[in-house]
Design a protein around this nucleic acid. Structure first.
Length: 280
DNA sequence: GTCCAGGTTCGCA
DNA sequence: TGCGAACCTGGA
C-alpha cells in the first residue's frame, strides 16, 4: 500500500473548498463524512481537509500541484482591478471570497467536458467515478488515460452510462493515444486558434473548447457560453430584450465588457447566479 | 409516462 | 449560413 505524502499548506487567503470543487470546473471530488474532500488533483488521488480557516491538510498531491490546481499564484485583488466595476461581479466576489479558479489535468478536463453535454454536474461526477473505477486498468483508482479508454472500446464506455457521448470520448482518446492529435502546441496558439484546434476533435464544440482552455490551460480570456451563461447574461445585462441575444453577440459583449480576465468573471457570475445570490 | 438537462453534429431550406 | 431535429440516460 502506497503511503500518501502529507503537506500542511498555510494559505494566504481563504479557500472555499465546497464552492470551488462543486462549481462545475472539475468533477472528481466527493465530500467524505468527516468533511474532508477526496478526488483527483492534476491526476493524483488526493484528500484535502481545512484544519483552520487558512490551513490546508493535503494528502497525495505535492505543494506545487495543489498550488497550481487552486491557482494560488493568482492575486484576486489585482484581477478584480482589471475587471469592470460591475455590480453583479462585485456581489459575487463579496459572497464567495474563497472561490478559486481550478487548473485540472488536460486529459481529465477534456474527458469530463466531452461527457458534460446535456448532463448536470452530479451526473458528470458520476460518469467520472464510473470511468475511474471501471475503465482504468491499474489497481489504483484514477481517471483512465487515453490509451486505456481507447483499448476499453466504445461499448464499455456506454456501460458506464455515457450514451451518445461514448462515441466522442472513444474517438478523441484514440486520436490522442495513437498520436494523430496532440495538445503540446496549444500553449503557442492564440486563444482563438486554440479553440479552432480543439474543435477539430469530435464532440468538442466552442463551449467545451472554452472550458478546456479556461480550466486546464490557464487561458483566462476563454469564456464558455452554455445555456446557463446565456440565461445569466440575458437576465443581468440584456433584461430589456425579450429574446436572448445570439451566441456571437454574447461573446462580443463578454470580450468588450469583461476584457482579458473574462474567464475569471464567468466563474463568479456562474456560481453566483446558480447559488441564488445574483438575479436581475 | 413525460419532460428536460451546463452540447454537438447533421441534414435541409 | 442558419435553424431544427436527433442523439442516450437518469432523475424530477
Amino acid at each position: 500500500m502506497l503511503k500518501h505524502q502529507q503537506v500542511l499548506l498555510k494559505l494566504e487567503h481563504t479557500l472555499d473548498l465546497e464552492s470551488t470543487l462543486l462549481a462545475g470546473q472539475c468533477f472528481s471530488w466527493v465530500m467524505q463524512p468527516d468533511k474532508s474532500w477526496s478526488g483527483s488533483c492534476q491526476g493524483r488521488p488526493t484528500t484535502l481537509s481545512l484544519l483552520e480557516d487558512q490551513l490546508l491538510d493535503v494528502r497525495g498531491a505535492s505543494r506545487e500541484e495543489i498550488s497550481s490546481f487552486f491557482t494560488l499564484d493568482l492575486n484576486h485583488d489585482e484581477i478584480r482591478s482589471n475587471l469592470p466595476d460591475d455590480p453583479h461581479l462585485h456581489l459575487s466576489y463579496q459572497s464567495f471570497p474563497g472561490l478559486r479558479l481550478i487548473q485540472d489535468s488536460v486529459w481529465e478536463c477534456m474527458g469530463n467536458f466531452i461527457c458534460s453535454s446535456l448532463k448536470q454536474v452530479s451526473q458528470i461526477s458520476k460518469l467520472n467515478r464510473c470511468l475511474s473505477k471501471e475503465v482504468a486498468t491499474s489497481h489504483l483508482i484514477h481517471y483512465p488515460r487515453p490509451e486505456e479508454i481507447c483499448s476499453a472500446g466504445e461499448a464499455r464506455l456506454r456501460e458506464c452510462g455515457l450514451g451518445y457521448r461514448a462515441k466522442f470520448l472513444y474517438r478523441v482518446a484514440c486520436e490522442i493515444s495513437e498520436g494523430r492529435w496532440h495538445w503540446d502546441n496549444i500553449h503557442q496558439l492564440s486563444t482563438e486558434d486554440a479553440i479552432e484546434h480543439l474543435c477539430q476533435l469530435p464532440g468538442i464544440g466552442p463551449k467545451i473548447a472554452n472550458c478546456i482552455l479556461l480550466y486546464s490551460f490557464r487561458r483566462f480570456d476563454a469564456f464558455p457560453i452554455d445555456v446557463w451563461m446565456s440565461r445569466i447574461l440575458h437576465q443581468l445585462y440584456f433584461s430589456k430584450r425579450k429574446k436572448c441575444p445570439s451566441f456571437d453577440e454574447l461573446n462580443t459583449f463578454a470580450k468588450n465588457h469583461f476584457g482579458p480576465w473574462r474567464g475569471h468573471a464567468q466563474l463568479f457570475l456562474f456560481h453566483g447566479f446558480r447559488s441564488g445570490r445574483l438575479s436581475s
